[in-house]
Amino acid sequence: MNTITVDKLTFKKKLSMIEQFAIKDFLFKWVGRPAEGIDEFLPLEYTECVFAKMEAIQEKAFVINGNEHFRYATITEANQMVIGFLDWNNELKHRVLSLDEVLIGKHF
């Protein structure tokens, strides 16, 4: 997984239903296949503000890597899966996931 600056990415303006389901499926596997399902464990909302994304509902904070807060997942124009998160300094960062991470649902 690579951390990258947002100026190097071009996000899609709209996500198809298939792309939205693919993101939710990846996140379901990524968080360890919770018994209650992804919608209860990590509720997401599809938004198209600035670009299309599956955004975490603010009331439910999901922490990754100890001190980073998951914000959203999306897909670039080059069909790369990207995770947006706030770091320990509340700075928005992005990670481009490898094909193995997307297909296998590896944790990071």
Rank of each mutant, 00 (worst) to 15 (best):
F85K: 01
E91Q: 15
K8Q: 09
Y72K: 01
E55P: 02
T76V: 09
P43E: 06
K14H: 11
T5S: 13
A56S: 02
F28R: 00
L9D: 01
L15W: 01
E68R: 09
M54R: 00
M81V: 09
K12A: 04
A52D: 00
T47E: 06
K13H: 13
L99T: 13
N67P: 05
K106S: 14
H94Y: 15
L44A: 00
L44I: 05
I64N: 05
I4E: 11
G66D: 08
E68L: 07
F51W: 15
W88Y: 14
R95K: 15
E40R: 08
L103K: 10
H69K: 12
T74F: 01
G66K: 10
L99Y: 04
H107Y: 10
I57R: 12
M54I: 09
A78K: 15
F26I: 07
F51D: 01
F85Y: 12
G66F: 04
K14Q: 13
A35S: 14
I57P: 06
F51G: 06
E101G: 07
E19F: 03
E77H: 06
G32D: 10
V96D: 01
Y46V: 01
E36Q: 13
M1R: 05
I23S: 05
T76P: 12
E36Y: 04
F62Y: 15
L103N: 12
A61Y: 05
N2M: 09
S98D: 05
G66M: 12
M54C: 11
R33W: 13
M81G: 04
F26M: 08
D7C: 08
K60P: 05
I23F: 06
R95S: 14
R95P: 12
F21T: 11
E91N: 15
E77Y: 02
I4M: 09
Q58Y: 12
D25K: 08
F26Y: 09
I83Y: 02
